[in-house]
Structure formats: C-alpha cells, structure tokens
C-alpha cells in the first residue's frame, strides 16, 4: 500500500442527537481507488460528509496531505484539493451543463484538453452542453457530477454511491470512466453498495459496520474470501451481482 493521502484517526461524529461515527480509523492510499463498503446505515455517507467538513468532528482527526483539516470549513477543504460527489449528485439543475462545469473551475478558465478528456469519458455532456442540467437523465446527471469533480485536477475524489438507481448499461459506462481515472492514478474514495462494481474497480477496501471500520485490506483478498464477505457484508458475492 502506498503512503496515505487521507487519514482518519478515531473520528467521531454526531447528527442531531444521534452518535453516528464511533472512532473511525481509515487510510486512503495515494493514487489508488479505495472502496468503502457496508450495510445501509453503517455510516459510509456520514464519513464522506465528515471528511468534507459538512458534519462536525467532536473527537478524532482528519489529516489530508499531511495537514490536519478537522476544523477546516467545507470551502477550504474543497480548495485544498478534495472533490465531493454526493449521493444525490448535487447538480445545479437550473444552470446549464456548461455553467455547472465552469462553476467547478475555481482556478480560472477551464483547460480545453481536460474538457476534451471529460467529453471522451462522458459523451452526453458535450451533446447537452448548453441545456439545463435539470433536464438530464439520472445517469447523465451522475456523469456531470463526476465530471464536475474532475474538471480541474484534484488530489482526492470522494464519490458517494454513483451507481444508485442507474441502468446496468450506464453503470458499465461509469465503471469505464472510473477505470480511466484509476489509470491516471487519481486518488478516489468510493462509497458503494454494488459489490460487483466495487470489486471491478477497487484496489483497497474498507468495510464499515455501526459507525466503525471493521475491516480494511486489499479488494483482491475480500473478493476471494466468501466467508469474509458473508461475515462482513451479510451476503455472498454472488447475491450482489
């Protein structure tokens, strides 16, 4: 495993009166795709929101690129190089596809070569360039959300359940896009319920249960060990495919 770009040490987090994260220990290796797995309500999405500063951390620390970002504001964390694609995609529906992407470019005009690369990854974005993003289909919105996170080079990409509610053909397109990102050694932390999608992409994996990381290692190990899958995820690999 390469050196971690992101480290969570004993992170606790509350949402209203509920204590959601109970001392998370997590490392995301630089240049690799890490999958965060777990049942519903395990605290995966809260972990991503906590990293982004959207949920306060009463105890523990979040270190990114060697800096303690635990008490940083969300906008400062984003400017430090972490891009976040939330579960609901967070598209600005009344703005056009172009405006959504331009908005994400906080360092001046967009780089045309990078834009062309994104168009290759997600062709519908070019087609619907000047259309309101709210008119896109679910899969196209997901593409736009990921493209928006990648429109400028970022050190780390956090993606929350990108396959949720998408048709198999679109999921395949997304997997191809993630493979391309992997090939470029973009560091990614991916929260996912779809194990077959996760197994195809993940290099390292962390499994969460009840607000804690209960297993971490390589995806290859987990994919080969049906008993471990049964133990950690409750179902065998076949059931998720």
């Amino acid at each position: 495993m390469s050196e971690p770009i992101l480290t969570l040490t004993g992170v606790h987090a509350d949402i209203d009166q509920y204590h959601i994260l109970h001392g998370i220990e997590l490392q995301v290796p630089r240049g690799e795709l890490t999958v965060l797995l777990g049942r519903n309500g395990a605290g995966k999405s809260t972990t991503l929101r906590t990293i982004m500063g959207l949920t306060k951390v009463p105890r523990g620390s979040v270190t990114f690129n060697g800096k303690d970002i635990t008490s940083w504001s969300t906008s400062r964390i984003a400017r430090a190089g972490i891009a976040f694609v939330p579960e609901n995609m967070g598209i600005f529906g009344q703005l056009t596809v172009r405006e959504n992407l331009v908005l994400a470019g906080t360092h001046g005009p967009l780089d045309q070569a990078r834009l062309d690369w994104l168009f290759d990854l997600f062709p519908p974005l070019k087609k619907f360039w000047d259309r309101p993003a709210g008119n896109l289909s679910g899969g196209q919105k997901q593409m736009l959300a990921i493209a928006r996170a990648m429109v400028e080079p970022r050190d780390l990409l956090l993606v929350d359940e990108p396959t949720k509610g998408l048709a198999p053909a679109i999921i395949d397109d997304l997997a191809t896009a993630f493979e391309e990102l992997k090939a470029r050694e973009v560091s990614i932390l991916l929260v996912e319920q779809n194990f077959s999608f996760s197994r195809r992409l993940g290099q390292t994996v962390a499994v969460m249960n009840d607000g804690q990381v209960v297993h971490s290692g390589t995806m290859a190990e987990l994919a080969q060990d049906s008993a471990l899958q049964q133990d950690l995820l409750g179902l065998g690999l076949g059931a998720h495919q």
Partner: peptide, 16 residues
C-alpha cells in the same frame, strides 16, 4: 445561483 439551489454544494465546490 448555485447558492440559491444548494448552498452546501456550492461550499463543497470551494466557494466561500
């Protein structure tokens, strides 16, 4: 307009 639609999302893009 981004703030109007979703302020947290605008923050997550790096805007104060």
């Amino acid at each position: 307009q981004a703030i109007r639609e979703n302020e947290f999302r605008a923050q997550a893009l790096g805007y104060r």
